[in-house]
Write a protein that binds this DNA or RNA. Structure first.
Length: 942
RNA sequence: GUCGCGGUGGCGGAAUGGUAGACGCUAUGGACUCAAAAUCCAUUGAUGGCAACAUCGUGAGAGUUCAAGUCUCUCCCGCGACACCA
C-alpha cells in the first residue's frame, strides 16, 4: 500500500479540478442558486493568516454541501487591495503600490489555491483595478447626483509629530498609530456620505434579515436610535431660544440649569450678553485645543464655565435657570445643548455637585412589584455610619427573614420620619446619639409581608445618620414575631454585597455610593403631574410645553475623504464657476496617476495635489479652467459593493453600462450566506447595507438588503492566548502547516479547534490528531470486503444526520468529532462494506476534499466525489433496539439496566425496583414517588 | 461606565433539565524494534479503598426541581466592542 502522501495528492487534484472547472458558477443555469460569500482579504505583505483559513474553509464546506444538494453555487474571491499598509510600505521602499499589490496578491492566490478552496477563480476581482474602481466611482457619482454626497468642514485627525492627517483607524486611544505621538482635530473640507438619511431603514430592516443576534445588537447600538423630544427654552432678555433634545421630558420640572456645547453657535451670538465673555472664550479655545489623549485622560471629571447674566426659562414651571458651556455636551449629538436634570442624570449630577447647583428631585423611585389590594403604609429606612471606622450599622435577620438589612420601621401616630428613625435606631440597636446628615425623597416600595400575608405599598423615606458616640442602652426585643437579629457594623463593601432588599439597596446606593436615580417612577414636584407614572407623563409634558417628539441617532454621516494616494480618486472636478462638477460617465475611471513619492503633503493634502498635470483639467460644464478633487476614497468604498462585482465579472467583465447586469443581479442576489469577522459588524456591513439600499432605491438591484444571512467566526489567537502579531513573533504561517501536514489536515484542524464563533488559541501540538485521523481513513480502504458489520453501518447513517445538521449550524468542531467517531468504529470492524465506506467518504469530502477524492478514485470511481449528491440517511438503521435505563434514587444514579425498546412503562418501573442496587439504596423504605423519563431513566424518591 | 461573549480534567473542548468530561492533544505503562521514531493496546477529574465501591466535583453563593454545567436571582473573574450619545 502506498503511504498517505498529501503533497502529491493535493497538487494533483487541485490541478485536475481547475482544468475541469469543477467549481465554476453558471450564470445561465436553470438550477436554484446559492450565493456563498466570505470577506475578501486585504493582501498584506504578511501573507495569509490562519484566521482566513478558518473562515474560508467553513464557507467552503457549506458551498460544497450546497453543490452536493443540487444548487448552482457562487463562491467567489477577490482582493480588497487599496489601503494604508501598502501605501506606507510604498513610502518606505519607494516601490509603486501597484507593484506591491501585484506581488502580495500572487502570494495570497497561491496560498488560497493550496488549501483546495472551491472558489470560482474566473471571477477574481481586485478593487485597485481601474476596471473595478470605475464602478466604485460610478456609484459615488450616483450618490452625488442624489444629494447623498456633499462636502463639509469636518475635523480631521492630525498627528502633531508626523504632521499628516490620519484616518480614524490610524488613531488608537487618541495617539498616532505609527509614531505614538499626540493627535488633535483640525478642520478641513471633507466629502461626506449621508448615511444618516438611511439610519431608520438600516435599523428597522434588521428585522427582515437572518443575522446572528449579536451582530444585530452591534448594528443597533452603533445606529443608536433614541426617541425623545425637542424642547425650546427661551433666553431671558434675548430673542433667542435654546433648543434641546431629551429622552426624559418627564424630568423637565427638575431641569435646574442648561448646558451648551462650547462650540455651539449661540455662544458666539450671545457674546454681548455674557458678562464673563473672556473666561468663556478662553474655555472654548481650550476645548478646541484639547487633544484626544487629554480628553480621554481627563475621564469623567466635569469642567465648564457659567455664562453670567444669561438665563433661560424652564417652560414647565417658568423658573429662571442659569446657562453653562461645558465639554461634556457634544455639538454633534442632538441639538448640541441639553437641559440638565441633576437629580436624574449621572453626568448632570456630577456637574451640579462640582458647581454647587440645585438638585431637584422630580421622580420618586418604585421598587418591588405591585400587587392587588395593597395596604398603604409609611416607613423609614435609616443608615447609621460611624465616621471613625467608616462602617455602617446593619441588622442580620437570617436567611428566612430577608438577610442583611439596615434599620427600618413604620411611622407611628403623627411621627415625622426623623422621629421614627431615631426611635427605631434606639429600639433596635440602642444607640442614643446620632446626627442626621441627609434625607431622601419618598420611595414607593411594593412588597409582600409573608408573616402577615398582606401585600403592602409603603412610602419610605431614607435617612442618613452619623454616629456621634458609642453610648447605648440595653436592647430588649419583646416583639417576638420579628425573632432575633444580629447587630453588626459592616464595611461599605460588605453592605453593598449582602443587602439584597431593593428598597434598602436603593437607599444605600443613594447615600453611600452617591448615585442619583436615573430610572422611571412616580412624579413629584411636577405641578399637575404629581403622582403620575413618569412614562405616562412624558407625552403630556411634551405637549404642554410645545415640544416636538423626535427620533435621533448616534450614527453620523460617513467621512468619505482621505488625503492619501492609494485609494479611488473621487471623480469630481472643482470649477470656480460651476462648483463641484461630476466627471462624466464616459470619462470614468479617473485613473490614479503614476507618481514617485507617496508621502502626504505638509498641508495635509493628498499627494495627488502635487501632480499638476493630473489636477488641472477643463470643467466638463463650462470648459473653463478647473481642478480635480485630490482626495481619495476610504478603504471601505471598494468593499461596499464587491459582492455585486463577482456577478458582473461573470457576465460582462465589469464593462459599462449597468443595464447589462440586471438579470444577473436578479438571479444571484441576495447573498445567501455571508460569513466574516465580528470587527466588521459596525463599519463594513453597515456601509455596504447603506450602498445597497441606495442602489435598490435607484433601481439597480432587486432587493433592499444585500445579505440574507450573516454569521461570524471567532479569532484564532496565538498559542498563549494572545493576539497573533508580527511584533510578538507568534504568527503561524499556513504554508508551513500545509507543507508538513497537508491542506486537508489544516482544514480539519481549524474546524476541530473549537466552537466556530468563539476565539480559540492555536496549538501546533494538537494538529497531529486530525493528521492521524486521515492516516487511519487512508489505511481503512485495505479492509474493504463484501460485508461490513451492522454496527459500523449504523454509525455512518447516524453520522450523516449529525454532520448534515452540524454544518448548517456551523458546529464544525462536533462534526469533525463525529467523523472521528465513525472512523474509530470502522477501524474496529474487521471488514468494511464498500457502500458504507463510500458514504463515509462523501461526508468527509467537504472537510478534506483531496484525500476523499483520491480514495474515491482508487475505489474505481471515474467521476469526482465532489459531483456526488449529498447522502441521505436511513433513520431505521440506527434506531436502538435496546434501551439503557438509568436508575436514580433521590436524584443520584445508582444503577442501570438494558431492556428491549418496546417494553411498557410499568415493566420498566418494576425492573428498576427489582434491581439489587435499588434494594440496597432504598433499604426497606417505601418509594414515595417513581418518575419515568421515556427511554432514559427511572427516578425513585424515598 | 454601557453592551456583547465566555468561565467545565494537565490542555482544546463535548453534553434536547436526565450516566458530566464525547472527540482530540498531553502524560504514564505495555506490545513491536538491536534501539529510536512511527504505529497498536491499556490507563489518564480529585480523594479514600486490596477490591466491590463510596464521597466530592462544571468561577462563588442562593433558589426552583424527583433531578441543574444547563433554568431564576445576586456576585466575582477574563476577553471583545463602544465610550460624557442627553
Amino acid at each position: 500500500m502506498r503511504p498517505y502522501d498529501h503533497k502529491k495528492i493535493e497538487i494533483k487534484w487541485q490541478k485536475r479540478w481547475e482544468k475541469e472547472k469543477l467549481h465554476k458558477a453558471d450564470d445561465k443555469s436553470k438550477k436554484k442558486k446559492y450565493y456563498c460569500l466570505v470577506e475578501f482579504p486585504y493582501p498584506s505583505g504578511d501573507g495569509l493568516h490562519t484566521g482566513h483559513v478558518r473562515s474560508y474553509t467553513a464557507m467552503d464546506i457549506i458551498a460544497r454541501k450546497r453543490r452536493a444538494e443540487g444548487y448552482n453555487v457562487l463562491y467567489p474571491i477577490g482582493w480588497d487591495a487599496f489601503g494604508l499598509p501598502t501605501e506606507n510600505y510604498a513610502i518606505k521602499t519607494k516601490t509603486p503600490p501597484k507593484v506591491v499589490t501585484k506581488k502580495n496578491t500572487n502570494t495570497f492566490r497561491r496560498q488560497l489555491k493550496s488549501l483546495g478552496l472551491s472558489f470560482d477563480w474566473s471571477r477574481e476581482i481586485n478593487t485597485t483595478d481601474p476596471s473595478y474602481y470605475k464602478w466604485t466611482q460610478w456609484i459615488f457619482l450616483q450618490l452625488f447626483k442624489h444629494g447623498l454626497a456633499y462636502k463639509k468642514k469636518m475635523p480631521v485627525n492630525w498627528c502633531l509629530t508626523c504632521k499628516i492627517g490620519l484616518a480614524n483607524e490610524e488613531v488608537v486611544d487618541g495617539a498616532c498609530e505609527r509614531c505614538g505621538g499626540a493627535t488633535e482635530k483640525r478642520e478641513k473640507e471633507q466629502w461626506m456620505l449621508a448615511i444618516t438619511k438611511y439610519a431608520d431603514r438600516l435599523d428597522k430592516d434588521l428585522e427582515a434579515v437572518d443575522y446572528l443576534e449579536r451582530i444585530k445588537i452591534g448594528q443597533k447600538n452603533w445606529i443608536g436610535k433614541s426617541e425623545g423630544a425637542i424642547i425650546k427654552f427661551q433666553i431671558l432678555n434675548s430673542k433667542f431660544q435654546i433648543e434641546v433634545f431629551t429622552t426624559r421630558p418627564d424630568t423637565l420640572f427638575g431641569a435646574t440649569y442648561m448646558v451648551l456645547a462650547p462650540d455651539h453657535e449661540l455662544v458666539e451670538i450671545l457674546k454681548g450678553q455674557i458678562k464673563n465673555w473672556d473666561e468663556a472664550a478662553r474655555y472654548v479655545i481650550q476645548t478646541k485645543k484639547k487633544t484626544e489623549i487629554e480628553r480621554t485622560a481627563e475621564g469623567k471629571e466635569k469642567t465648564g464655565v457659567r455664562l453670567e447674566e444669561v438665563f433661560a426659562v424652564n417652560p414647565a414651571n417658568q423658573e429662571k435657570i442659569p446657562v453653562f458651556i461645558a465639554d461634556y455636551v457634544l455639538k454633534e449629538y442632538g441639538t448640541g445643548a441639553i437641559m440638565a436634570v441633576p437629580a436624574h442624570d449621572e453626568r448632570d449630577y456630577k456637574f451640579a455637585k462640582k458647581f454647587g447647583l440645585p438638585i431637584k428631585i422630580v421622580v420618586e423611585p418604585v421598587t418591588g412589584e405591585r400587587r392587588e389590594g395593597e395596604e398603604k403604609r409609611r416607613s423609614i429606612v435609616a443608615l447609621v455610619r460611624d465616621p471613625k471606622t467608616k462602617k455602617i450599622l446593619s441588622l442580620d435577620w437570617g436567611k428566612a427573614l430577608g438577610g442583611r438589612l439596615f434599620i427600618g420601621g413604620g411611622l407611628e401616630n403623627r411621627e415625622s420620619p426623623e422621629e421614627a428613625a431615631r426611635r427605631e435606631i434606639l429600639e433596635e440597636t440602642g444607640y442614643k446619639n446620632v446626627r442626621l446628615t441627609s434625607v431622601s425623597e419618598k420611595i414607593h416600595h411594593h412588597y409582600f409581608a409573608h408573616a402577615k400575608g398582606v401585600a403592602r405599598e409603603i412610602e419610605a423615606t431614607g435617612l442618613y445618620f452619623e454616629l456621634l458616640d458609642g453610648e447605648r442602652t440595653d436592647v430588649r426585643h419583646e416583639d417576638s414575631e420579628r425573632g432575633k437579629f444580629k447587630i453588626e457594623w459592616v464595611s461599605e463593601e460588605e453592605a453593598g454585597r449582602d443587602v439584597s432588599d431593593p428598597l434598602h439597596l436603593y437607599i444605600f446606593s443613594k447615600f453611600v455610593l452617591g448615585k442619583c436615580y436615573e430610572g422611571s417612577g412616580i412624579l413629584t414636584d411636577s405641578g399637575k403631574w404629581n403622582g403620575l407614572d413618569s412614562e405616562t407623563a412624558k407625552k403630556e409634558i411634551i405637549e404642554f410645553v410645545g415640544g416636538i417628539p423626535k427620533v435621533i441617532y448616534k450614527l453620523r454621516d460617513w467621512v468619505f475623504s482621505r488625503q492619501r494616494y492609494w485609494g479611488e480618486p473621487i471623480p469630481i472636478i472643482i470649477c470656480g464657476k460651476c462648483g463641484y462638477v461630476p466627471v462624466p460617465e464616459k470619462d470614468l475611471p479617473v485613473k490614479l496617476p503614476e507618481i514617485k513619492t507617496y508621502t502626504p503633503t505638509d498641508t495635509g493634502e493628498s499627494p495627488l495635489s502635487k501632480v499638476k498635470k493630473w489636477v488641472n483639467v477643463k470643467c466638463p460644464k463650462c470648459k473653463g479652467k478647473a481642478e480635480r478633487e485630490t482626495d481619495t476614497m476610504p478603504n471601505w468604498a471598494g468593499s461596499s459593493w464587491y459582492y455585486l462585482s463577482y456577478i458582473m465579472k461573470g457576465i460582462s467583465n465589469l464593462k459599462f453600462p449597468i443595464s447589462k447586469y440586471k438579470k444577473g443581479f436578479e438571479y444571484w442576489m441576495p447573498v445567501d450566506w455571508y460569513n466574516g469577522g465580528m470587527e466588521h459588524t459596525t463599519l463594513h456591513v453597515l456601509y455596504s447595507r447603506f450602498w445597497h439600499k441606495f442602489l435598490f432605491d435607484i433601481g439597480i438591484v432587486p432587493g433592499s438588503e444585500p445579505y440574507a444571512k450573516r454569521t461570524s467566526h471567532g479569532m484564532i489567537l496565538a498559542e498563549g492566548g494572545e493576539k497573533m502579531s508580527k511584533s510578538k513573533g507568534n504568527v503561524v504561517n499556513p504554508d508551513s502547516i500545509v507543507n508538513t501536514f497537508g491542506a486537508d489536515t489544516l482544514r480539519l484542524y481549524e474546524m476541530f479547534i473549537g466552537p466556530f464563533d468563539q476565539a480559540v488559541a492555536w496549538s501546533t501540538e494538537s494538529i497531529v490528531g486530525p493528521r492521524r485521523f486521515l492516516e487511519r481513513v487512508w489505511k481503512m480502504k485495505e479492509k474493504i470486503g463484501k460485508t461490513g458489520d451492522a454496527d459500523s453501518t449504523a454509525q455512518v447513517e447516524k453520522a450523516v444526520k449529525k454532520i448534515s445538521e452540524d454544518i448548517e449550524a456551523m458546529r464544525f468542531n462536533t462534526a469533525v468529532s463525529e467523523l472521528m467517531i465513525v472512523s474509530n468504529a470502522l477501524d474496529k470492524s474487521s471488514s468494511i462494506s464498500k457502500p458504507v465506506y463510500e458514504k463515509f467518504l462523501r461526508i468527509l469530502a467537504p472537510f478534506a476534499p483531496h484525500v476523499a477524492e483520491e480514495i474515491w478514485s482508487i475505489l474505481g470511481n471515474k467521476k469526482s466525489i465532489h459531483n456526488e449528491s449529498w447522502p441521505k440517511y436511513d433513520a431505521t438503521a440506527f434506531i436502538e433496539t435496546t434501551l439503557t435505563i438509568m436508575v436514580q434514587i433521590n436524584g443520584k444514579v445508582r444503577g442501570k439496566f438494558t431492556i428491549p425498546s418496546e417494553t411498557p412503562e410499568e415493566k420498566i418501573k418494576e425492573k428498576a425496583l427489582s434491581l439489587p442496587e435499588t434494594a440496597k439504596w432504598i433499604s426497606g423504605g417505601k418509594p414515595k414517588r417513581i418518575i419515568y423519563v421515556k427511554g432514559r431513566l427511572v427516578s425513585i424518591v424515598v
